[in-house]
Design a protein around this nucleic acid. Structure first.
Length: 479
DNA sequence: TTTTGAGTTGTTCGA
DNA sequence: GTCGAACAACTCAAA
């Protein structure tokens, strides 16, 4: 009788799980193991919102395993010690896991693999998170891509081939004598926060429910709907994808199947293209592993950021910048652990361009407060907005939050929802309340932190100074 | 090797 | 109100 360990990390599901499927096929029993070792992720250990999600997702996985008369076995790291202890106790001869792409986790997993193989244990890893792994796709010159569109043209031709795997029908689950209760990991926030996260349902079932919702009423008018923050026009699958509660393969297959049995077939391509950005983010992180902290485009190393402004940063975090659409977004983030994509760009543009604060400051705040915080996507997004990234926005693309607000939140429904001080604002005032001094005083809403026009001009001047500078990011090759 | 076309999400200004 | 042009120059990817 043979036993294998299935080492769960961010693949917290049972269906379309190649590692789990392979382990069950080759072994009589599997030990479902989760190792808590945040120190192995260093400065990018999960933030508070992510920990909240993780807690509930582990709980959901445990419940699913309960239907197979087993429990998720939770232990503390270091990972290699925990694996060796589990191997000693169960006599497991193999460890299965799904690959991760953060540079420090690639390094850790390599070390774990090597140590276990020296012990004579078989180690098998799989792809459970991406349509295409970062090293499987390259330009004709065999370089990593740095521009999205050609990357997507290439990737798009490869993603219709595979069908997702079914969840295992039955399996025999092993257990440990020293597993710990989930609560002991203390993943839930101690302060009174995260109550507003209740709209989310972490876990595999929650992920599929969200997909169904999006397939029914969302993907069909995604192109217009995704830009309206007052609506649920986006998929809201990002945290589910981050924790691997659902795979992009399942998402694409699910949308395709749903479209096939709908009368007027919705066009799912624009949404798939957005998932392509998720893949692109992983591609970039793998080939340019320093981009979570350093400019992708080294030309930006010469950029003159404004002096660090703690006061402004605090007001930005609290949603008290005095610019309604920005404050609405920052408050939505604090209340729900999530922010609409369009608004993410606006708050990031204000911080990095109007306030000229370094993009890493915003990246760190998002890391702590987003339930979907993902190193690849977060770094790519901040660098894109600040102009330092791959496929960076042109220097002159500085969002005007008032114009954007009028365009994408025309009646101010989103602002009124998150900024109640402005609930009764009339007409244009909901977007720019400072245009009526008397109203502004009455509302109790703060004056704007910056003059939008003057700060825009300042930012343009600062970007001018980069002209002529040139440099190029060099990819880091394997080994 | 050289050339060519293109590059997620914008804003402002003047006709 | 609507529309088109200007806003830099550079690098990427493919032919």
């Amino acid at each position: 009788m043979s036993t294998a360990i299935i080492w769960f990390r961010r693949d917290l599901r049972l269906a379309d799980h190649p590692a789990l499927t392979a382990a069950i096929q080759a072994h009589d029993h599997v030990l479902p193991l989760y190792i808590h070792a945040p120190e192995e992720e260093g400065e990018w250990a999960p933030g508070e919102a992510s920990q909240w999600w993780l807690h509930h997702s582990l709980e959901a996985l445990d419940t699913s395993l309960g239907r197979h008369r087993g429990r998720l076995q939770i232990v503390e790291g270091p990972s290699i010690d925990a694996l060796r202890a589990a191997i000693r106790e169960t006599g497991a001869t193999a460890v299965y896991f799904s690959r991760l792409y953060e540079p420090y986790l690639i390094k850790r997993d390599k070390a774990v693999r090597q140590a276990l193989e020296e012990d004579g244990v078989e180690v098998i890893s799989s792809n459970a998170a991406l349509w295409c792994e970062p090293w499987e796709i390259a330009t004709k010159q065999d370089d990593p891509y740095r521009v999205f569109t050609p990357f997507w043209r290439n990737l798009r031709t490869r993603i219709d081939e595979n069908a997702p795997l079914d969840a295992p029908g039955s399996m025999s689950l092993a257990s440990l004598s020293h597993a710990r209760p989930l609560d002991e990991l203390k993943l839930l926030p101690t302060r009174d926060w995260a109550r507003g996260f209740g709209e989310w349902t972490p876990g595999e079932q929650g992920a599929h429910d969200m997909l169904e919702l999006f397939a029914d009423d969302g993907v069909g008018h995604y192109v217009e709907g995704r830009d309206i923050p007052a609506r649920h026009g986006t998929s809201r699958l990002s945290p589910h994808l981050h924790f691997g509660e659902i795979s992009p393969l399942q998402v694409a297959a699910g949308l395709r199947a749903h479209a096939a049995r709908t009368k007027n077939k919705p066009d799912i391509e624009p949404y798939l293209r957005q998932l392509g950005w998720r893949e692109f983010g992983h591609h970039l992180l793998y080939h340019f592993p320093k981009t979570p902290r350093e400019n992708f485009n080294p030309k930006f190393d010469a950029f003159r950021w404004a002096k660090r402004d703690r006061h402004a940063l605090r007001r930005w975090k609290q949603g008290k910048t005095g610019i309604p659409i920005v404050d609405a977004g920052m408050r939505e983030l604090w209340a729900t652990g999530w922010m609409h994509n369009r608004v993410r760009m606006l708050v990031a543009s204000l911080l990095t361009k109007n306030l000229r604060q370094h993009w890493v400051l915003g990246e760190k705040w998002f890391w702590n407060t987003l339930v979907d915080a993902d190193l690849a996507n977060n770094a790519m997004g901040w660098q894109w907005v600040s102009g330092s990234g791959a496929d960076a926005s042109p220097y002159f693309r500085i969002f005007n939050p008032v114009t954007q607000s009028e365009k994408f939140d025309p009646d101010g429904a989103y602002i009124r929802r998150w900024v109640p001080e402005l609930a009764d604002a009339k007409g244009r005032l909901v977007h720019a309340p400072w245009e009526d001094e008397a109203y502004l005083d009455r509302s109790g809403y703060p004056r704007p932190l910056v003059d939008l026009k003057a700060s825009r001009d300042d930012a343009l001047t600062a970007y001018q100074s980069l002209k002529g500078a040139r440099a190029e990011a060099a990819p880091v090759s394997e080994e």
